[in-house]
Simulated assay, not measured.
Amino acid sequence: MRDPNQRLVHLKLAFFAFIVATVGIALMVLGKYLSTQSMSGFISFLPISEVGGTLLVAGLVGIGLDLWIDGDRGVVIEKLVEKVMLRALAKLAPTLRDSVIQAFADNIDHLSVVATDEFLDRLARNALTLRLGDRTFAEDIYEDVRDMAIAATERWYDTKISMNLSPLPQGPGNETPPAFVLTARYEYRVRPATINRRFTAVSNMREYRAIMEEPGDTSVWYINPASGFDGSTREAFELVQFSVDGEDRPIRRNSRVSGQTYTASIGKDVVDNSELVTIAYTYRTILRRHGHMLHVDVEQPSKGLDVELEYGGCGIAEMRLIPFISSSKKVRNFEMPSTVPEKTVGIGFDGWVMPKSGVIAVWVLSTENPVSLTETGARGTVTVQERKHNVSNFG
């Protein structure tokens, strides 16, 4: 189909040729009329008929030529415009390319207009490949981090975990293995994505792993049956407090054969506001004394993590917190001096902690230490020997 502008130009040319031809005919008629009159003077010398004939021929020839070369003229003009555009783009292409890349790099709003998820994935992979120089390595790292971040329903900030370990009192005739009571308090800032928070304790490893793999609003604890406790009882696990911005929220408990679940309401209005709030909760659970290990994980991506564990009066000779955090940033370690009665260890980290990362606490009981604490002599010397021995055991 012919371009509307070309049609307009063609119409103007045809109309102009028609006007010229009409004027030529009119002059020829006028010349013929004057020749039939007996006129003298200047007007008799004017070649009116010849001019009219010339104009008539020019108009007719112009119309014919316009019709004949109309198709070729469009092709010629298109080729001419194409050549001009190609030359201009060849000169402007580097500048345009750099401008587009710079605009995308500086302003995320520009990129969001044209970017799809697939486009962003390719862009990130290519950028990381150029930075690392290894495509396979770059793609694996990007996909791993992307999947963890996208699966996360929330992002936590300034997460603080305070834990206290104390011996579990055993009454006469109690045949349960020696155990510790762990009281843990979590506090963090977050924009809540769910109305409710759920806390589940189970004694079935298969159920525990299934819940662990499901992203969402449920935290899960595994109560080892070897501890002599069942995950469905309050003695094994209990959520004792839950608050939003310092305001305590009611807690509902649902018990079943395989475990128990505590539900606390954050509130629909809090979720709809999408504002940062401080969520804090405290739970109590049981640990086997001879288990020698406690795993404290972070369920959502967290910016900043502080963990502190008190274990005085538990008969523990040595306690260590081992951070499992993959980052180039340094983890701060803290241990209360031996001259202080309180026994506390802690770690601090200012970067992002990804889900399933965290801290593992490991300990050695005083009764397991090869050097007897009741040995007479220079107690300070014995203590130093014990500490050296335990440090070597933990590597």
Score class of each variant (00 low, 15 high):
residue 94 P to G: 09
residue 276 L to H: 02
residue 85 M to Q: 07
residue 159 T to P: 05
residue 86 L to Q: 15
residue 138 A to Q: 04
residue 217 D to F: 04
residue 123 L to H: 10
residue 335 E to Q: 08
residue 119 F to D: 04
residue 303 K to L: 15
residue 10 H to I: 00
residue 264 A to F: 06
residue 374 T to L: 09
residue 1 M to I: 09
residue 339 T to Y: 12
residue 164 N to D: 11
residue 45 F to D: 11
residue 356 K to W: 13
residue 394 F to L: 03
residue 349 F to L: 04
residue 232 S to C: 09
residue 156 W to M: 08
residue 350 D to I: 01
residue 184 A to F: 00
residue 54 T to E: 07
residue 65 L to C: 12
residue 327 S to K: 00
residue 278 T to N: 02
residue 231 G to K: 00
residue 170 Q to M: 12
residue 142 Y to Q: 05
residue 195 I to P: 02
residue 292 H to N: 15
residue 51 V to D: 06
residue 146 R to N: 06
residue 393 N to E: 14
residue 55 L to N: 12
residue 195 I to A: 11
residue 93 A to T: 07
residue 216 G to P: 06
residue 395 G to D: 14
residue 368 E to F: 01
residue 187 E to N: 02
residue 290 H to C: 05
residue 388 K to F: 10
residue 30 L to D: 05
residue 56 L to F: 13
residue 295 H to L: 13
residue 71 G to M: 08
residue 237 F to H: 04
residue 205 M to K: 07
residue 141 I to L: 13
residue 176 T to E: 11
residue 270 V to Q: 07
residue 83 K to H: 08
residue 341 P to G: 04
residue 326 S to F: 08
residue 323 P to V: 05
residue 79 K to M: 11
residue 139 E to I: 01
residue 367 T to P: 09
residue 248 D to V: 02
residue 310 E to Q: 06
residue 364 V to A: 11
residue 376 T to S: 14
residue 312 G to I: 00
residue 76 V to M: 07
residue 376 T to E: 15
residue 236 A to M: 01
residue 309 L to I: 15
residue 31 G to S: 01
residue 26 A to T: 03
residue 6 Q to L: 09
residue 116 T to L: 04
residue 367 T to A: 14
residue 269 D to M: 02
residue 273 N to T: 00
residue 78 E to Q: 08
residue 269 D to C: 00
residue 283 Y to W: 12
residue 91 K to A: 10
residue 308 E to W: 08
residue 252 R to A: 12
residue 209 R to A: 13
residue 302 S to D: 03
residue 326 S to E: 12
residue 195 I to K: 14
residue 353 V to L: 03
residue 355 P to S: 00
residue 358 G to S: 00
residue 260 Q to A: 02
residue 78 E to D: 15
residue 326 S to H: 09
residue 137 F to W: 13
residue 216 G to E: 10
residue 346 G to Q: 09
residue 146 R to T: 03
residue 133 G to Q: 06
residue 204 N to T: 10
residue 165 L to H: 05
residue 273 N to K: 13
residue 39 M to C: 06
residue 89 L to A: 04
residue 171 G to I: 09
residue 211 I to K: 13
residue 131 R to N: 13
residue 114 V to C: 05
residue 330 K to S: 10
residue 375 E to W: 09
residue 13 L to Y: 06
residue 131 R to M: 14
residue 183 T to Q: 10
residue 343 K to M: 15
residue 288 R to S: 15
residue 278 T to P: 01
residue 395 G to F: 08
residue 140 D to W: 05
residue 351 G to A: 14
residue 210 A to M: 09
residue 383 T to W: 01
residue 353 V to E: 08
residue 44 S to M: 04
residue 102 Q to T: 12
residue 364 V to K: 13
residue 24 G to D: 01
residue 216 G to C: 03
residue 365 L to S: 13
residue 172 P to K: 01
residue 88 A to N: 08
residue 24 G to Y: 00
residue 149 A to I: 07
residue 343 K to Q: 15
residue 368 E to K: 01
residue 193 A to H: 07
residue 123 L to Y: 15
residue 179 A to S: 15
residue 52 G to N: 06
residue 392 S to P: 00
residue 357 S to I: 02
residue 126 N to P: 04
residue 280 A to Q: 15
residue 17 A to V: 03
residue 124 A to V: 05
residue 180 F to N: 04
residue 295 H to Y: 12
residue 269 D to W: 04
residue 362 V to H: 09
residue 251 I to Y: 00
residue 348 G to I: 02
residue 14 A to Y: 02
residue 309 L to H: 01
residue 365 L to P: 10
residue 371 V to G: 00
